Computed example of a mutant assay.
Amino acid sequence: MSALQFPCKIFETQKKMDDKNAKDMKSGDLSEIELRAKFHLVDVSTRVDPYTMTKISPFSQPQSMFHGSRGEGEKLTRWECAEILFDELRHLSILFALHRPYNLLIDLMITHMQKGNGKQFSHQLLNSALKEHIVNDKTKNSTLRLLKDALDAEIDWENKSLSSNGKSELNKAILDGKLPKFDRYKDNFNGLGITVHDTWATHITIKSLYIDKERYHAKVHYEVQDHFGLDDDDISKVKFKYFRFLGIWFILQRYSLFAFKPFMTNMDATVDIYGGRNESKK
């Protein structure tokens, strides 16, 4: 049986990279009527009314004793209104991004949505977060741990190689685990839950495998892609629908008068696996 040649991709999700047809990659596809009736997005912002393009002041609130006084209903251009909504979005994001260093990401990504016109986004902080997650995952479902177990078992020590059959075993090991996602409790407050949370597509490649008499060293590359965008389900879930943050985001992305484009978020990390001849479970 032939030996594997490296680099060798050993895993990829069914969901594809660069999928522009994903449900959360839509923009500008909804009318005011749909947003109000289907998604119940009526009270969207505390600063502006995105439907009438007017500024909201304390005096324009019906319950105010000064209702009808100065500053009520100041008309805005579409882009002035969007600017205020983006500023409010940044302000509200603070609750989900309390801890450094990853709390810096949400501000960067909101600005990228505002000005990037759908261009893909990458940042070293995302790469660092991914690598930290992979390396520090000590659970039984850790893909890194399961890959090591599979390598321990499948390496042909006599020929100092990994057979082509070993590829399917490595793939199976990953399928038995949990791919790195930012859905841990701490991710609700460190900025990663709101910027990434789940992920869309993952590719895992063994870049190199060095085997000597008693030890091996594998370099494993994770390539992960997510979408910074909202689909219908995101805004319809009971746990999210009353978050003003998501309502504003949804309006900016999906309302036909704004239509700011969502974008793909790319991150990657290379990690090392070391093992020995006597570590095989077989």
Rank of each mutant, 00 (worst) to 15 (best):
M1N: 00
M1Q: 01
M1P: 10
S2D: 05
F6K: 01
C8F: 02
K9Y: 03
I10R: 00
E12T: 09
E12G: 05
K16A: 10
N21S: 11
D24S: 13
D24M: 07
M25N: 13
K26P: 04
L30A: 10
A37D: 13
A37N: 15
K38G: 01
L41W: 00
V42H: 00
V44Q: 03
V44T: 08
V44Y: 02
T46Y: 12
T46K: 15
Y51E: 07
I56E: 02
S60W: 01
Q61S: 14
S64T: 12
M65E: 08
M65F: 12
H67Q: 10
G68V: 00
S69V: 11
S69H: 14
R70N: 14
G73K: 15
L76W: 07
T77W: 03
C81N: 10
L85M: 15
L85W: 03
E88T: 02
L95H: 12
A97G: 06
H99Q: 14
H99P: 08
P101H: 10
L104M: 14
I106C: 15
T111V: 11
M113A: 14
N117Q: 15
N117E: 14
N117T: 04
Q120L: 14
S122A: 14
A129V: 06
L130W: 05
K131M: 15
H133I: 09
I134W: 06
V135A: 04
V135C: 08
T139N: 05
S142G: 12
T143C: 15
T143H: 04
L144G: 03
L144K: 12
R145N: 09
L147W: 09
L147F: 06
L147Q: 07
K148T: 03
A150P: 02
L151C: 05
L151P: 13
W157T: 04
K160G: 08
S163G: 10
S168F: 06
E169Y: 00
N171M: 12
N171V: 00
I174Y: 04
I174C: 10
K178H: 08
K181F: 09
K181E: 15
D187W: 07
N188I: 00
F189T: 14
N190H: 07
G191Y: 02
L192Q: 04
H197F: 14
T202P: 05
I206T: 07
K207F: 09
Y210L: 07
I211M: 03
D212L: 01
R215G: 00
Y216V: 02
V220T: 02
V220M: 03
Y222D: 12
E223A: 09
D226K: 04
D226G: 00
D234M: 07
K239T: 04
F240T: 13
F243R: 15
F245E: 04
F245L: 15
F245N: 05
I248P: 00
I248R: 04
W249L: 00
W249E: 02
F250L: 15
F250H: 06
S256R: 06
L257M: 13
A259Q: 10
A259T: 08
K261W: 04
P262I: 12
N266Q: 13
M267R: 13
A269F: 01
Y274A: 02
G275P: 06
R277Y: 05
K281R: 11
K282V: 13
K282I: 13
